[in-house]
Amino acid sequence: MADLAAWGDDYLLGTLVVLKVFVVALIMAVIFGLIGAAARLSRNRIVSGLAKIYVVAFRGAPEIIILLIFYFGIAVSLTALVQYFDPATKFVDIPPFWAGSAAIGLIVGAYMTETFRGAFLGVDHGQVESAYALGLSKFQTFFHVRVPQMWRLALPNFGNHMLSIMKDTALISVIGLEEITFVAQMATSVTRQPFTMYMTVALIYLAITTLITFGVAALEKYANRHLRGAR
């Protein structure tokens, strides 16, 4: 226990890094998801085809491979680019924080694409028709009829995607970002107590994922409030 306490500060800082990656990746995932969903729903077959490829590739390939492509691939590309201007440069490092956040954002963005698309299509077509029949414009129908129901439909999956992002942050330790799994690796090499150190990491993740789960459950309750006590 004393050994663990000595590493308390590092775990705390590592947790902050995890939370930062989470927030950045979540924002990216939502943006990619919205763009992806719009593209998937597009009548332009090239656009929707590209979006489909994006979804299939990023959902079918292992997260760690995508992360490694981002980290090493971008580094190699940037190095080549910089060497073009300044041949003396040996190597350009890309911050693991950004490589990791972008990779996770893109991966989960592919899942969000399908969730947002499903939510859009999930709104009963009869409602859209009755909105048109009442004289609402396409724009008004979208914002007053579709959106309020879409987020209710998307919420359960969205919650799962948030959990995926949170758990994927552990992968970034592989490219050397000093988050909690990385801290545990270092702590293990010093204290020789790997179980204690990795279990601590697991419990920190468990605490955060529990909070997310409760948060989403509360939101769902709020979103479904008009469905309760029907009669």
Binding site: L163, A170, L171, T181, P194, F195, Y198, A202, Y205, L206
Partner: peptide, 15 residues
Amino acid sequence: RGTPILVQIFIIYYG
């Protein structure tokens, strides 16, 4: 379900 697989692997293999 609440913890990363990577951490689960590390707990079992290293831990």
